[in-house]
Simulated assay, not measured.
Amino acid sequence: MVPMRIGIAGLGAIGRTVARALADGMPGLELACVAARDPGKARAWLESQGIVAPVVKLESMPSHADLVVECAPASVLDDICRPMLSARKKVMVLSAGALLPRPELIELARSKGGQIIVPTGALIGLDAVTAAAQGTIHSVRMVTRKPPRGLAGAPYLVENGISVDGLTAPLRVFAGSAREAAIGFPANVNVVAALALAGIGPDRTTIEIWADPGVERNCHSIEVDADSAKFSMSIENIPSENPRTGRITALSVLAALAKQRAPLRVGT
């Protein structure tokens, strides 16, 4: 079997974990290239890890990779997706919130024959939501609780003069739709964007966001009411070295990559 060539756009906490796993060996997959904001720093890290992979520009990735994993700031999503999708290739998108205001990327994938993959990430139960969406979902509600440091600096907090410093009790900092949350907290709640894409869309999916000094993990609770089932889910994610991102997010990417060439695929 010819290995599937995997590119990584962004070498932060998630990108490095994925690069390391691919370099160590994943059946049917190979690390083909890396793109990063600071190419010199990326090359130095790869060399320090003994990982051999070219560092290329985003627009060159289709020449090297069959699938690119997006591990970069949401602001460069277009620059990552457009070249790959136009070349009829795949992009695994972690910045799901950035997809909501960019439906043209989904249309580009449809028209060119490419594909956008949104992994489960830091969430739980997207298979159940996707299945329920084949019928009728009446409502999807989500509550997120994060340590204050994991929300600090979010545009919504800055614009509304909301401080999460020195909190001694939980503070609800946002309540609204998934679309609004994705705009106000672009680095914090990609989970609700993925949930919305799996279910009833970003305008009908609702979320509360709490800054909670009493938690050390990123906590998400979801309630779904559908004609096929009524179910609730909760998960407590241990933060990675980046407090905005759970450790399980990178593992979710690896699981989704493994499915690309697995002889047994479990889950939708």
Rank of each mutant, 00 (worst) to 15 (best):
I116A: 11
L105G: 05
A128D: 14
I106N: 06
A109Y: 00
G125E: 07
G114D: 04
T130L: 12
K112I: 00
G121S: 01
Q134T: 15
A122D: 11
V129D: 03
I116E: 08
R110P: 07
G113L: 04
A131S: 14
V129R: 01
L126R: 01
I106H: 11
R110F: 13
E104L: 01
T120M: 14
A133H: 10
A128K: 12
L123V: 04
K112G: 02
Q115S: 11
G125I: 06
G125K: 09
Q134W: 12
E104V: 07
G113N: 03
V129K: 01
G114L: 04
T120A: 12
I124R: 14
A131Q: 14
Q115E: 15
A109E: 03
G121L: 02
D127A: 09
L123C: 06
L105D: 05
L123H: 09
P119G: 04
L126G: 01
Q134C: 12
R102C: 02
V129N: 02
D127Y: 03
L105H: 05
L108P: 02
E107P: 03
I106R: 12
V129L: 10
I117D: 00
G113D: 05
E104I: 04
I116F: 09
L126F: 04
T130K: 11
R110Q: 15
A133K: 12
A133G: 10
Q115G: 02
S111H: 11
L105S: 09
L108Y: 05
S111F: 08
E104F: 05
V129M: 06
V129Y: 00
Q134P: 02
A122H: 08
I106V: 14
A133D: 04
I124G: 00
Q134M: 15
S111V: 13
L108Q: 07
I116H: 03
K112S: 13
G114A: 07
I106E: 12
G121M: 00
E107Y: 07
G121D: 00
T120L: 13
G114T: 01
K112F: 04
A133V: 10
V129I: 14
I116C: 07
I124Q: 09
I116W: 09
G121E: 00
Q134R: 13
I124V: 12
G125P: 07
V118K: 06
T130Y: 09
T130N: 07
